[in-house]
Design a protein around this nucleic acid. Structure first.
Lengths: 133, 133
DNA sequence: AAATATTTGTCCGTATGTATC
DNA sequence: CGATACATACGGACAAATATT
């Protein structure tokens, strides 16, 4: 399954897992096989599995729950947030405070809306769709 | 410098390096000390340095150049892009094609502007500021 | 031109800590 | 309490890209 001469093994593994998730093999809310089993199944080391899983997590496909496993995330419904006129929209990594108060997973950025230099709103980038009037 | 009983060592190291960068110790374009030197200087292992540097990279502070080192990124000038009315703005990870064609570094997302379900533009999230009329 | 050194990338192993069941 | 599972942290080995001699 994994070709040592091609792309890095962790990228190949991430692609394989992503395909199995999107094929519905593990529905939303289900747990993926634990890391040691994936290691055995694909014949790779721990670092490879970790890198692959990190990639899936940063893409918002799975959540890692300590002591539990890797859970497939529910499909996110993006909340529509209206944007005022003359606004500037930028994306940036969240501050530690924002990560805590909004429960923002690792690797997810925030959308910041400013008007005239004043911040009007900060939203998790994976759960938000900004709509202009 | 690094307290084994406090936060994870890689977070502490990332904070220390971030502070030294923001203090101007390594100006934009300069190279940080190589990873083996950081290991010795802070008395940590390889995985710790890697995790800390990964965090700095995902925050857009440094670029990793293979065979060269870790370079402090130039402060990015965000290009202002106008957004039409009745548009929906979302952020997502780039596809491999988009990463290649726009030279998007690892960990950086893209801003997608759609109008009526049709994609009107895709922009690197770290170099773009969308402006509403 | 060619060999050597430096530096990061990837991959493997082990051990210990912590949370959940 | 014990078993399971992820988080953190230590290490080694080799490959790939770059710079230097």
């Amino acid at each position: 399954m994994i070709d040592p001469r091609g792309a890095p093994a962790w990228q190949q593994l991430a692609a394989l897992l992503r395909a199995r998730i999107e094929a519905g093999e593990w529905p939303p809310g289900a747990l993926l096989p634990p890391a040691p089993r994936l290691r055995h199944e694909y014949g790779v080391g721990k670092a490879t599995v970790k890198a692959a899983v990190d990639a899936l997590r940063s893409d918002g496909l799975v959540d890692l729950e300590r002591g539990i496993g890797m859970r497939v995330r529910e499909p996110v419904v993006r909340e529509r947030v209206p944007v005022p006129r003359a606004a500037l929209i930028t994306a940036r990594p969240p501050t530690p405070d924002e990560r805590a108060s909004m429960a923002i997973p690792e690797g997810v950025h925030v959308l910041e809306v400013t008007v005239g230099g004043r911040v009007r709103g900060v939203y998790p980038a994976d759960r938000t769709a900004l709509s202009t009037a």
